[in-house]
Computed example of a mutant assay.
Amino acid sequence: MQTSFKRHKGAPNTMLIVDDDELNRDILAMLFEADHAILQAANGLEGLKAFSERSEDICAILLDVMMPVMGGMEMLEALARTHVPERVPVFLITGESGGEVIKQAYDLGVMDVISKPITPHIVLRRVNSVMELFAARNHLADVVAEQTEELREQNKQLQSFNMGMIEALATATEFRSGESGEHVRRIHDITRLLLVSSPLREQFSEEDIRQISLAAILHDVGKISVPDAILNKPGKLTPEEFAIMQRHTVSGDEMLTRIPQLKGLPFYDYARLIARHHHERWDGKGYPDGLAGDAIPLCAQIVGVADVYDALVSLRVYKPPFGHMDAVDMIVNGRCGVFNPLLMEYFRDIAPSIRELYARSAQTEMQTETQTETR
């Protein structure tokens, strides 16, 4: 015969007995005091007060129906309003045999209705069985919550690792071409700025915006395949050299397909589209596929604008930097290829924010250089 209650470590272990008959309370207390701390109340009002003061400790409520001041059904209704029966098992112990009372009790969430006069071993068995089920369920919920948190933390660490791997891969390309590693970070920031500070935000979820911005970091990954003599040539490229340079878009797409760790990551498809198509132009005169208009993936169009702006305002081996307003004017007026007219409106609107972004970036780089020099 089951006589003891199996409790999970750290679980609540106080039983609240609410009955106006002191003898009944004592009998019930004697049944359960070997395994539980006992808390008693003589009516529903006292019971509610006791529960509110010790709610974190209470593992079960044994509740009489007929009591002065406040009856058991009234107390049960008050408990149900705050969903207590969903997390603490409530047992109605009553001499009432009316079906309506029992139905109402079950509707309000009691786990069992036990008739008076009570039979001790039956009460013990029925109450302990239900309490063990509740305890097991709550323990399982705690374990699931703990494991979920562990998985969430592991996912954050994995995302951090992936971000580091992505930035390392992208920055390696930038260093080969003599550009600052901050280039890829700025492309990320401009892309995100265009997506969140313009009507484009209505076309993408916050998660899509995050993934597109992350994918933008790998836009030029294919330049790893371009020979140094072409990548760092200070003068104008010959037609043959330019054709090789153009291949970095296709190479980037192909390279991403060969890194199995990237497949399945949420930004992967965006990264491939951006790597391949960020040099396509609205009039079809871009490369590598000569796509035109809306045939160009929107994510690639956005990164294409960001990439051109950063190239214009940055020092390159083949040119000095342009000023902010000159760069904006060159892009909007088609001197760097034709872009989506609507995208140009958005770009012009957020141009002041881009200037601020670069001012903050320059300040950060200066502080980093100062710290390095003082070491």
Rank of each mutant, 00 (worst) to 15 (best):
I209Y: 11
R185D: 15
S177Y: 01
G304L: 07
T14A: 13
M111L: 10
V328M: 06
M73E: 15
A295W: 05
V196P: 01
G235C: 09
M245E: 05
I296L: 04
N155H: 12
L262I: 02
D228F: 06
P117R: 13
L315M: 09
P234N: 05
K156E: 10
Q40R: 08
V123Y: 08
L262T: 01
V123K: 07
A243Y: 05
M325T: 03
S55E: 14
N24Q: 15
T148N: 13
F32T: 08
P260W: 04
R375Q: 14
G10Y: 02
M163I: 02
P260E: 09
L291S: 08
D228T: 06
G304I: 08
R375C: 11
N155P: 00
A136N: 12
P199W: 11
Q246P: 02
C336S: 14
Y346S: 03
S314Q: 10
G98I: 04
V143I: 09
I259W: 04
H83Q: 14
V110R: 12
A50D: 11
Y358D: 14
A50Q: 15
A41W: 12
L343H: 11
D294E: 14
M163G: 05
P120F: 04
L256Y: 06
R192G: 07
H188F: 04
V196S: 05
T173N: 08
E240R: 09
T370H: 08
S4T: 07
M330W: 05
T368N: 15
G304W: 11
E356F: 00
H121Y: 13
G304S: 07
D26L: 06
I38P: 12
R81N: 11
E356D: 13
E182M: 13
F267N: 00
V90M: 04
M344W: 09
S353Y: 00
I118F: 07
D349Y: 00
V113N: 14
I93R: 03
S97Q: 14
G71H: 06
I118P: 04
E132V: 03
E74A: 06
S198G: 01
H36K: 15
E365Q: 15
K49Q: 11
L193H: 10
R360Y: 06
V65I: 14
I296D: 02
Q363P: 03
M1E: 06
V127Q: 13
V332F: 09
L315I: 08
S160G: 12
H183P: 01
S52V: 01
R7E: 14
F175E: 11
L23Q: 03
R201V: 07
T94I: 11
S4E: 10
V308F: 09
G235V: 10
R247C: 03
P266N: 01
S198Q: 01
A136L: 10
I166P: 01
K9Y: 02
G323M: 01
K263P: 00
L256G: 05
M245P: 01
A60H: 09
H279G: 05
G47T: 02
T191D: 04
A29I: 07
S251N: 10
I224S: 09
P199T: 04
F161Y: 12
L262R: 01
A80K: 02
V338M: 10
A359D: 15
Q159N: 11
G164M: 02
Q211L: 09
Q104H: 14
S198A: 03
L194N: 00
M73W: 05
A311L: 14
E345K: 12
V328E: 00
F322S: 10
Q371H: 13
S213H: 06
Q154P: 00
H83I: 04
V101M: 15
A60I: 05
V123M: 07
Q367E: 14
I302S: 12
V143C: 07
S205G: 12
